[in-house]
Design a protein around this nucleic acid. Structure first.
Lengths: 189, 189
DNA sequence: AAAAAATGTTGACATAGGACAATCTTTATA
DNA sequence: TATAAAGATTGTCCTATGTCAACATTTTTT
């Protein structure tokens, strides 16, 4: 059950077995259905999730009812409504599993307790933040000035599995284009 | 000289005078001219900058010679070419002071040494990353689906001083619109 | 398995904002 | 201070992509 998480940690930091066990002991298993909502608009996010199997999606719904996908975490990666998790303010977004999924969950309290007591875990969190920051930067500046075709080519180059795993509608809303436009572009590739 | 930096740190973490002095001792003063380049395209970023006075800008120039502004740091904040600073890969971007500025500079080596030895400093860096992450998210998702007018309104609401401090050209390239469009919008506000 | 709902595709049309160019204004340089 | 260079503004025109609608396909529910 913890195999993937252990691999994740060991590939990023040298750590003793005892501490690794301590970390794992703070995560519990959670099985979810397709389209199950984990965090709602007004919730304050209290958990960090690790995806063993499936996929979680972070998204918003605006006043016109249009969904915008913000972030996807696939197998072997962490995800949550991070701004709310950090600041403990309402998320103003939704977190869901878009497929039947196996997750590992840790509470915020336990998470920060591990961050504060296990240097290797602190380092891993710092790396998640650094990487998240860099990814966000690339997303902003990669997309700045890109037209629809270039955005699609970018996502194919950077996350080859993305268009295969995610519905057109979700993919389009992630790329900031309409499903019609994405459909037209795909037919010409 | 260190007043602003000390205020920055003390407002974010409880810290003893001794450690505060140690931190300050690792920063040295740097006076720069308007449009002085601090980091070039092929450089690997080796310094973190704190702005006492003036403003630093991070930007790129694409193959057609068009500049895109990525980030601005004004008085009392930190800035650098963070992805390169973190990963020690070429920046592929430029860092400059857009006005005559007074900066404090710390080397990467000293910076990470402070992160690893002074918990309060580690916490501040983590906060910078968390905040940077949140800001980047807001920038992405705030702008996703915004038209030009909404982008301008957003920047006025979120960084009121921005349009006053920064040239039209730089502001437009930050917002991902042309100077013409920005000009037209401002005339209708 | 049938019916209903959601999603995907494709066409016709409309429009926001980019490209380019002509001034005007501010800033830099000699 | 004069001249040159860079930036800002505004007009005209054009294109990428959005909107809306019709139909096709896939998924969900009964």
């Amino acid at each position: 059950m913890y195999d993937s998480l252990i691999r994740y940690i060991q590939s990023r930091a040298a750590i003793e077995k005892e501490q690794l066990d301590l970390i794992c002991s703070r995560f519990s298993a959670l099985k979810t259905k397709r389209n199950e909502i984990l965090v709602r608009y007004d919730d304050i996010c209290q958990h960090y999730y690790f995806v063993n199997k499936g996929c979680i999606r972070l998204f918003t719904i605006n006043k016109e009812g249009i969904e915008t996908s913000r972030f996807f975490a696939f197998e072997g990666s962490f995800g949550t409504a991070l701004p709310s998790f950090i600041d403990q303010k309402p998320t103003f977004e939704y977190l869901q599993t878009i497929e039947k999924s196996d997750l590992l969950v840790i509470s915020r309290t336990d998470f920060y307790q591990l961050v504060d007591t296990i240097p290797a875990f602190e380092m891993i969190y710092r790396e998640i933040l650094e990487l998240g920051f860099i990814t966000a930067q690339k997303r902003i500046y990669g997309f700045q000035g890109f037209n629809a075709l270039e955005k699609v080519q970018w996502i194919i180059a950077n996350q080859p599995q993305f268009l295969l795993r995610v519905s057109n509608k979700m993919a389009a809303s992630y790329l900031g284009i309409t499903p019609s436009t994405l459909s037209r572009i795909k037919s010409k590739l």
